[in-house]
Simulated assay, not measured.
Amino acid sequence: MMRRVEVMPYDSIWQHLYLEEKKRLEAIFKNQLMAIHHIGSTAVPGLAAKPVIDIMIVVEDIEQMDKLNNQLIAIGYETKGGNGITGRRYFQKGGDMRSHHLHVYAEGDMNIKRHLAFRDYLRAFSGEAERYGHLKSELAKLYPSDITSYINGKDIFVQVMEMKAVDWYDRHYPLS
């Protein structure tokens, strides 16, 4: 089955789905867990998004993660390695009808700040979130069955937005 690109208006259920999954993940990660965050578009109230809950977990030692793979598989996750990002462990839940993405990083990884800055920037600047949501909606209409073209279509916008977001984040949260 081909994965359909579907961008939906914001739904407050996404926060509840995150909180439910957070409980399951906390039970698995236990003392490995340093922080857990709802990231991505579903974490930004008002932002149109693909209905996939992105969760970022921060652990002390990324190598210890591999011992938890079977427990994650038991609750429906598929192991995807780093999926192109060094130092990350990545998991997907829901098969072709994805429901969750799980990103795991070791404490201090630069990608942690990038994800949090992007999320918090879009939460703080609703006009930027609206522009991003509009772009995603238009791309989903253009490429309803081509996830690669959808992602490529967002790429430059996201890179520029991330640079602005990290700069803003550094000024507002200088100790992060």
Rank of each mutant, 00 (worst) to 15 (best):
M161P: 02
Y150D: 08
M65H: 15
D66A: 11
L33D: 02
A124E: 06
A129R: 01
M97H: 13
P9L: 08
S126I: 13
D146E: 03
M65C: 12
I55K: 10
Y173I: 09
W14M: 08
M65N: 15
P9V: 10
Y143R: 00
G127P: 05
M1A: 12
Y169T: 11
I62L: 08
K113G: 05
I73F: 02
Y143E: 01
H134I: 14
F125T: 00
K154V: 14
L122F: 15
L175Y: 15
P45C: 10
K67G: 10
E138L: 14
E20R: 10
A74F: 02
M110L: 14
P9G: 07
H101F: 09
L47F: 09
Y143S: 03
Y121F: 11
G46E: 03
A129Y: 01
R3I: 15
N70Q: 14
M65D: 11
S41E: 07
D11W: 13
A129I: 05
I75A: 04
Q92Y: 11
F29V: 10
K23F: 10
L47D: 03
D66K: 15
F29N: 07
H103P: 04
K141N: 11
D11E: 13
E78C: 06
E60H: 14
I28G: 01
K22G: 01
V59H: 04
K154S: 08
R24I: 09
G133V: 06
D120K: 06
E162G: 05
V44Y: 00
R24G: 03
G127M: 06
I55F: 13
V104M: 00
L135K: 14
E63V: 13
I13E: 12
H134R: 15
M65R: 10
A49C: 06
